[in-house]
Amino acid sequence: MKTNKFLDEIRQTMTPEMKRQMEMSVKIANRIYEIMEEKGLSQKDLARLLGKTETEVSRWLSGTHNMTMATIAKISEALDTDIIRVTSKRRRKEVVMA
């Protein structure tokens, strides 16, 4: 595959933490979009549910927005679905024992 030398040089400067943060943002945006599709909601619908503008919703769905926990919680509540789940070893053990 052909690559560009300037892009390759800049790729070397990316920190693993920054890559991970960007990947997480994209995954969250994709998950929100998935849930909206499942529920047949448009960006306009979500904006109305949250009292936000379509532009703001569009930014969230682009995967380039640095979302706060508060925003993620609000969207989860509006969609009535957890957007993110945090796994825990203790919970897994409890489930296995039950």
Partner: peptide
């Protein structure tokens, strides 16, 4: 603006990998 440029480059890498749907842009 090294961080901003690096982010844009990595964003392009994600788009190359996952696809270029309109919602990823403005």
């Amino acid at each position: 603006y090294p961080k901003d440029v690096a982010q844009i480059v990595y964003r392009l890498d994600i788009i190359k990998r996952d696809g270029a749907e309109d919602r990823h842009f403005r």
